[in-house]
């Protein structure tokens, strides 16, 4: 699903800044929500959204129809967020493997107590709990859960964005839900 008209895209590809602003309008809330959920704080989320739109703008003349525009812009946003996380923890692997056994060594935990007070303005208390659980999740799982449940993208779209097969997306969602359950649902299983 694309959110900008073809004509607008073409004008923006020719360097029309007013046309590009329509693209920004169509995606800024979506991308800010995604970046905030990925990074867990407002400052880094704003930087990531700005960087995403700058990359979109500079590379726009090279966009072709191989993928939907929406997929293309989400791929850039995902890469920018993951880059941001890598910069934060340069020596830690952000990936977990997709093998049969969960690889706990690949788990990466991020500090969730670095939020600035503004962050709480935009979140309910319950929502902040879920955000903390997300922050604590391996990035691979966090990414698919955010794309599926918060951005409401289809498995095929997620597969295109991440360049992995749909079966891999499903496996990551399964493991992600389990990981969230462990961190978040406090009712002990009898």
């Amino acid at each position: 699903m694309d959110h900008v008209a073809q004509g607008v895209l073409e004008e923006a590809q020719m360097g029309d800044v007013a046309a590009f602003e329509k693209i920004v309008n169509a995606y800024e809330n979506r991308l800010f929500t995604m970046a905030f959920r990925m990074l867990g704080n407002r400052t880094e989320a704003e930087d990531a959204v700005q960087e995403t739109f700058l990359r979109v703008y500079t590379n726009l003349p090279r966009y072709n129809e191989t993928y939907q525009f929406s997929t293309w812009i989400y791929r850039i946003a995902t890469n920018v967020c993951i880059d941001g996380l890598r910069k934060r923890r340069p020596h830690q692997s952000l990936d977990v493997d997709d093998g049969e056994e969960g690889n706990r060594d690949g788990y990466e935990r991020l500090a969730s107590d670095e939020q600035d007070p503004l962050d709480f303005v935009v979140q309910t208390e319950r929502c902040a709990d879920v955000q903390r659980a997300l922050n604590d999740l391996p990035v691979t799982y966090r990414t698919v859960l955010i794309l599926k449940y918060i951005q409401e993208l289809s498995l095929q779209e997620i597969s295109d964005i991440l360049h992995v097969p749909v079966t891999t997306v499903k496996t990551r969602i399964h493991r992600g839900r389990e990981a969230m359950k462990e961190r978040f649902v406090d009712v002990p299983v009898s």
Binding site: V17, E21, V24, E28, N29, L31, F32, T33, F36, R37, E46, V49, Q50, F53, L54, V122, Q123, T124, R126, C127, V130, Q131, L145, Y149, I150, R177, M180, K181, F184, V185
Partner: peptide
């Protein structure tokens, strides 16, 4: 419950200052 909580997370609005900065 995990699915419900994720789906009910608030959708955020990008700050106006961010929009201006980008443009």
């Amino acid at each position: 419950e995990v699915e419900r909580e994720l789906r009910s997370m608030v959708q955020l609005s990008a700050p106006c200052s961010l929009h201006e900065r980008i443009m």
